[in-house]
């Protein structure tokens, strides 16, 4: 009997390949620099971190949905479209690995990359600790929320990138879907909506927004329903991803 790997070795093999793909190219470092510059700019200049004179990171986390809206699709857009364009999908899917293993491996690798980018923002956290005494538990919760938010956008991007061979198309599609998930609960938009429809409808729509669920985590409140929301978005999108890849092969 010929050997084949366990689920764990298969997934870790794929994660390692994807990560070495990220760090083997200068694009990754450019991305990290842009990510940090943007986070810094939004926090300190637009968010007026110092003028607030608060020992908290609200002005930092508040911008994350908007930042991720573009940066996460940029990280994930090539996940599947590139495999389709190069024909390596055929190679990958004829190896003794299951489709869920490939999907999870690819997703995890990009998520780890985003987590590294997020971890590199720790100087902001150090700064508030030097300047005052913030609630570090709340900050940790906010970091968790941010990571889940990035994961949700990433899963959506992974799904859209399976729809096309073209990275640019996959980028635009995922930005659009993520934008919908953001503005459905963005207060300027919801305020506008209440003028036309009942508040019940508006809050029902808003409950599907990442904003609603990110807000609580960002303020340091861990609610399992919020965590569950992000995890279900991830699960849903990755399931959609599998359906799309299966459909590609069915012809």
């Amino acid at each position: 009997m010929k050997k084949h790997g366990s689920a764990f070795t298969n997934i870790s093999g794929i994660v390692r390949r994807e990560l070495s793909g990220y760090f083997g190219s200068p694009v990754a470092y450019v991305f990290l620099v842009i990510f940090l510059l943007m986070a810094g700019f939004l926090t300190f200049t637009v968010g007026r971190f110092f003028e607030r004179a608060e020992a908290s990171l609200v002005s930092f986390f508040t911008w994350h949905p908007w930042m991720y809206l573009f940066l996460v699709p940029a990280v994930g857009m090539r996940l599947w479209s590139e495999e389709r364009r190069l024909g390596t999908l055929e190679l990958l899917l004829t190896l003794p690995v299951t489709l869920p293993q490939v999907i999870i491996g690819k997703f995890l690798a990009s998520w780890i990359f985003l987590a590294i980018a997020l971890a590199l923002t720790c100087p902001v956290w150090l700064t508030v600790n030097v300047l005052g005494s913030p609630d570090n538990g709340a900050i940790l919760t906010a970091y968790l929320g941010s990571l889940l938010l990035a994961g949700s956008f990433l899963a959506i991007t992974s799904m859209t990138s399976a729809m096309t061979r073209n990275q640019a198309v996959s980028f635009i599609l995922s930005v659009m879907i993520c934008l919908l998930l953001v503005i459905a609960g963005y207060s300027p938009v919801t305020d506008l909506l209440t003028r036309w429809t009942s508040p019940a409808v508006v809050s029902a729509v808003a409950s599907f927004s990442v904003m609603t669920h990110f807000d609580a985590l960002q303020r340091g409140v861990i609610d399992l329903r919020d965590v569950g929301f992000f995890l279900s978005v991830i699960g849903f999108a990755l399931f959609g991803n599998a359906v799309i890849v299966r459909g590609l092969r069915a012809g």
Binding site: G5, S20, P96
Partner: peptide
């Protein structure tokens, strides 16, 4: 995978072959 070396690519395949 064009971004990998020949050795890296074959090692990756070997990993997935268990």
């Amino acid at each position: 995978y064009g971004d990998m070396t020949v050795h890296g690519f074959l090692s990756f395949i070997a990993d997935l072959r268990g």
